[in-house]
């Protein structure tokens, strides 16, 4: 059985310890977390957790069931299909030597991302997009020298029916 990548989104009670229950479930049962994103929803009593994991299908089934079993987890959804919008954001600090400065700005333009900080020897680029877009951008920037990077991990929402 091959491992599949799944994006779970869940609504949880916005209470102390709830994230720890979710994360503890993964570590305690040997499930893996590729990325994790948490923030309050429009209802301050409820947070949304978006979690990306890799596992084979029976384990994915267990993960979803175990998440549902947690008393503070209100609703779990697997958003791995096409009926969901998925985005990730990254801040990338790239070395900007004089000979690369124009090239970097061209790449930023092509990828429709933004330079949010400039220095004598660096740019910080803000990029939002699918994971594929981020990977492509990173591949292009890597030769210039990436000094630091901060990624949010994927967030996802189910599309509304038309």
């Amino acid at each position: 059985m091959t491992a599949e990548r799944h994006i779970f989104t869940m609504l949880v009670d916005n209470e102390p310890g709830v994230l720890s229950r979710v994360v503890g479930l993964f570590s305690g049962r040997g499930f893996n977390i590729e990325s994790l994103c948490v923030a309050e929803t429009i209802d301050p009593k409820i947070s949304r957790i978006t979690l990306v994991t890799m596992a084979n299908p029976p384990v994915i089934e267990q993960i979803e069931k175990q998440l549902n079993k947690l008393i503070n987890v209100i609703k779990v959804r697997d958003l791995s299909g096409d009926d969901a919008v998925k985005r990730e954001m990254a801040l990338i600090c790239v070395q900007a030597r004089p000979e690369h400065r124009a090239e970097i700005l061209r790449i930023v333009d092509i990828f429709r991302c933004k330079v949010v900080d400039v220095g004598l020897a660096h740019y910080i680029i803000e990029v939002t997009g699918t994971e594929g877009k981020l990977t492509a951008l990173l591949n292009l920037l890597r030769p210039m020298g990436i000094k630091k990077i901060a990624r949010t991990g994927t967030v996802a929402l189910l599309r509304e029916p038309n």
Binding site: G17, R21, G24, G28, I71
Partner: peptide, 14 residues
């Protein structure tokens, strides 16, 4: 103790 018993209780409260 809430942290310690999280994995071995059905649920716990502080």
């Amino acid at each position: 103790i809430v942290g310690i018993t999280r994995p071995c209780t059905k649920h716990n409260y502080l």
